[in-house]
Amino acid sequence: MVEDRPLTSILTHFVLILGVIAIALPIWITFVAATHDELRMNQVPLPLWPGTHLLDNLTQTLFGAGLSGSQGAPVWLMLLNSLAMAMMISFGKIAISLLSAFAIVYFRFPFRMTCFWMIFITLMLPVEVRILPTFEVVANLGMLNSYWGLSIPLIASATATFMFRQVFLTVPDEMLESARIDGAGPMRFFFDILLPLSRTNIAALFVILFIFGWTQSFWPLLITTDTSMTTIVMSIKQMLEAAEQSPQWNIIMTTALLARIPPIFVVISMQKLFVQGLTETDK
């Protein structure tokens, strides 16, 4: 900072703390809601300070019936489904993008540019605008209510491919030359040299993709009808609908708490990678 006057300093921190409060308030209020019992959560005004029922709520949500009166899957199963979906999307996308970026950067082959353009075009089509026909394709392939149907349509996207392409282009040419003189073939070079050299980029991308996969709700809502395939995020939506009849906000907000702990944990604990991943790609 150029000047360090106490007054500007105080003002700066004041504004920032105000910002933090504004941003964190929704998270705080819903956390508080997860620490009270149902009775308290139906009295106006709602509490702003944590209560003592967090453990009860957690037990009921995770292992009990969850929201009473609903026929949903147990919450631990939903967490598992979300984890499976997020992992499949992350690993799948990283794997196919690494391979195709490798081919595009390190090989000269007929139709290389055709491949490039076909991948490129996916940049322009968010899943939301082609949702109906994509749904039909998934249905025709018999992939409704399956992990494959949950993850694979969200796997294809050019962004990761472009990021890896960019990373590979910054790898000095001498790495490949040196490896060729050492006698390494293409796949050996890929696994021994290229992958280790890109590992922080891979990790950064993994963080972003994990969050992308975990926070999906629209797509799972469309293609899963079987309650055993429910993901935690989409269950929130279903609970909100149920809440219009019998509000059990303590349980809903405990579920919401569980639903956001994994991605928030990932973002905070891997902040550096997260920021790197976000600025290098997006989604």
Binding site: P172, E174, M175, E177, S178, A179, R180, I181, D182, G183, A184, D192, I193, P196, L197, R199
Partner: peptide, 29 residues
Amino acid sequence: EPSARDIAMVFQNYALYPHMSVRENMAYG
């Protein structure tokens, strides 16, 4: 292929594999 010519090359920027130790670098080929 370069590897079949029985040659060794020292590059201007050395082209050492940054993720391998000195020993691994030398042993790779």
